[in-house]
Design a protein around this nucleic acid. Structure first.
Lengths: 189, 189
DNA sequence: ATATTCATGTAACAAGTTACATGATTAG
DNA sequence: CTAATCATGTAACTTGTTACATGAATAT
């Protein structure tokens, strides 16, 4: 049931269509939650039925009409209640970790390539986060921003994303150097 | 389909019962994959049916009998093939991020408490990882270990766990200080 | 005494993924 | 002219979670 709360949290920043949310929750770009469009459309239906959000149809000229959702009072208070509940413990769940755990019985070259692809993605995400950060700060220093804004949530989640990707890069570097050392030992020139 | 690969990767280190795997994949302790016992028992059944693993019944005296699983040749080659496939992109998916995204419309005090609990868990996990590391190194330096072992997977995943929890702590510190500064401003003594 | 550990499962449900479908518009 | 963007969905399937159930043994 976290998706619905993620949707409500996203709607705090203003109304959005299913399509908008799908972009925001896309794995490649998401900064605090991910989901597929299919899951979203299904969940939005339910949430509307339960009165947590409300839809407004916006007629467009050269585009299909869209349904734009916003939080209801009920949704807002459900979200408030959610922040009071204890957070579930999380752990990383990553395909890549399974591959690495099995690297000794697997194909080290292929795994190496995956790690490098991952690092490339991490760099792209960091760049993206940096752009979002600029937009948030809007010329101000971090201190100024934090003093002035009454909307600190997006900053905190962005920070987590940044740290996470930095950690990925740090780890990737070590993994590559360890795998290389082993490859060199096994197939000495 | 990653659970089955995680199971196979775990079985590389020797045979295990469903119960053993359940402990290893428990969220509180897992170092490279998580799942509930229920999911495991279901998946083990299927995997046995598909010939990826094989069960051996161990009769015990003062304990219930157990079924101990090991990798078959088929399983081993499926695992090898898995390491050759590209890794799916991942992103953090964490309840806590949703709470923080919504903290401005929520209950900052409660969120603060959750963050502190998380940090406590992170410290516990770090301590646990440290113990596992000692056991792996077994008196040797990292360099020696890496030179001597032919089983580098567990070391690499452990490293990721450590970095991840360190990142959690670093982030938690920043979050707390930002939330505190805001609380002080809103309710000046 | 009580809680935890060992050891396995069933059943029902919720959440997430994949494949498919439609159809106009605009950017390269 | 092709790909991407805008905008929505249905259907089928796979994963993951929660609740319940059993029953002995050992640790506190």
């Amino acid at each position: 049931m976290a998706l619905r709360h993620a949707v409500m949290a996203a709607l705090l920043e203003g109304e959005a269509s299913g399509y908008d949310l799908a972009k925001r929750f896309d794995t490649a770009t998401a900064d605090f939650w991910t989901s597929t469009p299919q899951q979203l459309y299904r969940e939005l239906e339910r949430m509307e039925g339960e009165g947590l959000i409300r839809a407004r149809v916006v007629e467009q000229e050269r585009r299909p009409n869209k349904r734009v959702f916003s939080l209801t009072e009920e949704g807002r208070s459900a979200l408030h209640a959610f922040t009071r509940r204890p957070a579930k413990p999380t752990a990383i769940r990553d395909d890549m970790l399974v591959k690495l755990q099995a690297v000794d019985a697997g194909d080290p070259e292929a795994v190496r390539t995956s790690v490098m692809e991952r690092m490339e993605r991490a760099r792209a995400k960091l760049a993206r986060y940096e752009r979002i950060r600029e937009r948030l700060l809007n010329g101000r220093s971090e201190e100024e921003y934090l003093r002035e804004t009454d909307h600190v949530g997006p900053y905190l989640t962005l920070l987590r994303g940044r740290y996470f990707e930095e950690e990925n890069l740090r780890w990737g570097d070590e993994v590559l150097s360890i795998l290389d050392a082993r490859a060199a030992r096994r197939a000495p020139r």
